[in-house]
């Protein structure tokens, strides 16, 4: 507890009541470390990989993990699972993160605007949100990818067009509460321009919930790519990604269970890292 002494003031020498917080935010540290490792692995994939991830070797197909030269074995076409896993991380993390960035930005800005200005603008934006939400997520994404043609570019566009609504609703709800808070009134009372109130005063206070949601959204996006891959609309083969690895491996679940399980574990670890980061952010930044 720090004590602020007031020189020259006869009125108030005060020990401020700070909420006790842990010095070290364990959740955030562990989460960031884990996610950092995943990113590092993805970046260093060409260095760490023991084989070319797309090179087939039918003579050595479906080797069990621990086989000589193949740390995690090989798949049904004889491709090295370990190398594919590393290269898959590159694809999945990039698509997962990038496909969340633009919906995040678009949804947050529209949510800010809708919540702050209200009126017809709010009605318009929220009606569009309602329309998008009325369609099942996958039906819409699949339809869009189908229309735009398969490939990662189409996946970005499709997920952006569908994904922003969640951020918009979250941020709008937070803004509706925050704009009645007295600090927002005070900012208006002191004559600051609207854009400044929105982005300097409101945004930092409302964005936390959206950031937390984006953590789980990254995992959902990776899963969406898996689903799209199943329908032949995902990352085109033979580029390795975890989704297609799970997809390919599932037909051998009874004999070579690890083919689907190993990439599945990778998805779970990614999800865990992001969830830890989200919880850590709450602990670090939530002022409520």
């Amino acid at each position: 507890m720090t004590v602020i002494s007031v020189p020259g003031s006869a009125t108030d020498t005060v020990a401020p009541t700070t909420r006790r917080r842990r010095k070290h935010n364990v959740l955030l540290i562990v989460g960031l470390t884990l996610f950092g490792l995943l990113v590092l692995v993805a970046i260093l994939a060409p260095v760490l990989a023991t084989h070319d991830p797309i090179q087939q070797d039918l003579a050595h197909a479906r080797l069990a993990p621990g086989a000589p030269g193949h740390l995690l074995g090989t798949d049904e076409l004889g491709r090295d699972v370990f190398s594919r896993l590393l290269y898959g991380a590159r694809v999945d993390l990039r698509v997962g993160v990038l496909a969340v960035v633009s919906p995040f930005i678009i949804g947050t800005v529209l949510g800010l605007v809708a919540g702050w200005f209200g009126g017809w603008l709010d009605t318009l934006i929220m009606r569009i949100v309602d329309v998008v939400i009325a369609f099942p997520f996958f039906v819409l994404v699949i339809a869009l990818v189908f229309a735009l043609g398969a490939g990662t570019g189409s996946i970005y566009v499709a997920i952006t067009m569908v994904g922003w609504v969640a951020y918009c609703r979250i941020v709008r709800g937070e803004v509706l509460v925050a704009k009645e808070q007295e600090y927002a009134l005070a900012a208006r009372a002191s004559g600051l321009p609207t854009w400044r109130i929105l982005f300097r005063h409101l945004l930092p206070n409302v964005v936390l919930q959206a950031v937390i949601f984006s953590m789980s959204d990254i995992v959902l996006t990776i899963l969406a790519i898996v689903t799209l891959g199943y329908l032949g609309l995902g990352v085109p083969p033979p580029t390795p990604d975890w989704g297609s690895m799970i997809q390919d491996g599932q037909q051998f679940l009874l004999t070579q269970w690890y083919l689907a399980t190993i990439p599945g574990v990778a998805v779970v670890i990614t999800g865990l890292a992001l969830a830890l980061i989200a919880d850590g952010l709450v602990e670090r930044f939530d002022s409520r």
């Binding site: 808070q181 007295e182 600090y183 009134l185 005070a186 900012a187 005063h201 206070n205 002022s287």
Partner: peptide
Amino acid sequence: FQDPYSSLNP
């Protein structure tokens, strides 16, 4: 303002 807890940007 009235509420010293909500009237300052945290």
